[in-house]
Design a protein around this nucleic acid. Structure first.
Lengths: 334, 334
DNA sequence: GCCCATCGTCGAAGCGATTCGACGACCGAT
DNA sequence: ATCGGTCGTCGAATCGCTTCGACGATGGGC
């Protein structure tokens, strides 16, 4: 393995010069710059990550904490994760994968050993035990999701409140007078996961504002639960004409159950989902939906982190705008 | 941040002694050992990862390359990933997340910069461009999946051939005389992804051996494709009584389509799946299935890697045994 | 024509661990 | 009593890079 000294010798310069060529922290004549770059190329030089981290006090690695909890849709997490990796690479950083398993100790460890420069935490709860730890770690951190006490933290997420509002507004415009929200599993609410409660808040606000009859229903993420939920809703509220679904795994079962109940979407019942676009597009019929901009959130989270690492000020809260795409599952109320 | 020197001073020993206490590479009197450990505790000492990597030539990080390709079931990947992280932590290693995005360059980079000690690659194709690279990287590596040229590589995976055989044997025992395999999307076969072809091989061998009429059908992972597939199969092969499904996302749609076609599972048609247990359990009816032992594979992959890092010899190929669990979706042929 | 900045480069001092050889102390064997 | 061999600990070198201060050369202002 070639070392910086080899490159320096090969190019006829001092090691420090090579370092400055690589980092751009001091100006270098174009001629020597080229010479050094050619030597690097020829020798296939790659700086030793550990040595670099030791000398510069920067590892160029960010930690990503992914949730393993039940009740959250895995493909969405994966999309977050991959977009974080991609974005991090564009900023010349790598991503260390941490799971909830190790809990708070994992955060302390990667921070304490200087293994990472910064941390991204997904699936933040309202009262999250990691929040106080992040506070005294004094490492730049970005949370995907909002805890209750968010002061002085950098948080980002889809604006779920606005997402729910958009769904309700859309249904209200179409003349619906009674709607229901089929939400995340009960355990998600019980954990106080922010996105679920924010969705509910938006839903309640908007239905209230429109004077629409409304009800909220947490729902297990199983086909059976979905089926049962639909049956119950249709039975208890004969005037129900609009449904908002915010629970990916039950979308297909809900549609199937509606069909089996002899109702047609959107003629008898309009359905709006808050879910990834591909899911909405592949449903039958294609669903009017507010998409989950996982890529955008991931990329933006990394952007915020890099800004913090660079010492630039960043906003405490970043809400990604909710965009509703009308498709074939919503129509005028009967 | 406390350094090893601080600990040494606090405990009244040399830094090297502290190091030896931590690594156990030389014997230390119990008394001083305890003294050092207490100092470490009191000062909250955590060794600097970079310095450690530089001096020891070991980063204690393994790279995990996850696929982003279409046609593979995301939750299964996630389960692999988390089990790899968990297992790695048990061996005092961390996991660096690499995506297919950066391709072969990513492997060269993390290896060349000594960022990682070893590599785990998922979703290996028959003719995988990463295989030759791994060969000359000279870093310990474990592949999850089998390439065509697997000599001198360490590979591990579910024994998909045996899995298919188990499914067919099960159906044959129940008296079925014509069966079909609904497989992965065509692109997966075209890429030459090992698990798909191995499943097909096992299916073909076993049906041949039993003298059962058989056909193999790649299938896009969409509900529409599944529906169409079922319709076509029922129409083209009126004598069809058994189906093996090896494509997670279409399992539910296939069952739905069968129901809509007026057939009953398992009375008219027996269905066996190769899929994660939770999926099989939640289907209606619960599916007889061969499970995908993601946790076992991930943990075992890490075990192999650690053995290689420790200089111990490991087998080239490790096949995880296929276990079929009978549930409610299979019965005697009509 | 002289002086002071600025620019480009160099050399050396860290960064914080690991590891190897050396060296007393202590033990049992002779 | 002496010698050789362990055992436990120390000190110093080393890993490969970054960074800071220094220093000659160059150029512009007066």
């Amino acid at each position: 393995m070639a070392k910086i000294e080899d490159v320096a010798r090969h190019a006829g310069v001092a090691p420090s010069t090579v370092s400055y060529v690589l980092s751009g922290k001091r100006s270098i004549t174009e001629r020597t710059r080229q010479r050094v770059l050619r030597s690097i190329e020829e020798l296939g030089y790659q700086p030793h990550a550990g040595a670099r981290a030791l000398a510069s006090n920067r590892s160029n690695v960010v930690a990503l904490v992914v949730p393993l909890r039940t009740g959250i849709h895995v493909p969405v997490i994966m999309r977050f994760a991959t977009s974080v990796v991609t974005a991090a690479r564009e900023h010349d950083h790598d991503v260390l994968l941490l799971t909830q398993n190790e809990g708070v100790a994992g955060l302390r460890r990667v921070a304490g050993t200087s293994l990472v420069d910064a941390i991204i935490v997904m699936d933040v709860e309202l009262d999250d035990e990691r929040v106080p730890v992040l506070r005294d770690l004094r490492l730049p951190a970005v949370l995907i999701g909002f805890p209750a006490q968010a002061q002085d933290l950098t948080c980002i997420d889809l604006d779920f409140t606005a997402a729910a509002v958009a769904c309700v507004d859309h249904l209200a415009e179409l003349g619906h007078r009674r709607v229901a929200l089929i939400g995340s599993p009960p355990e998600v609410y019980e954990r106080g996961t922010g996105f679920a409660t924010r969705t509910t808040a938006g839903f309640t606000e908007a239905t209230g504002r429109h004077g629409i009859a409304a009800s909220v229903h947490p729902c297990e993420s199983t086909p059976a639960a979905a089926r049962e939920m639909v049956t119950r809703l249709l039975h208890e509220h004969p005037d129900l004409t609009g449904v908002v679904v915010h629970n990916e795994p039950v979308i297909a079962p809900v549609l199937a159950a509606i069909r089996e109940a002899g109702r047609t979407v959107p003629d008898d019942l309009s359905v709006v989902a808050i879910c990834p676009d591909d899911l909405a597009e592949h449903a039958m019929p294609a669903l009017t939906s507010v998409s989950i901009p996982a890529e955008e959130v991931g990329r933006e989270a990394v952007g915020l982190l890099m800004a913090k690492l660079g010492g630039q000020p960043v906003p405490d809260a970043t809400l990604i705008e909710a965009r509703l795409t009308p498709r074939d599952s919503t129509g005028a109320a009967r």
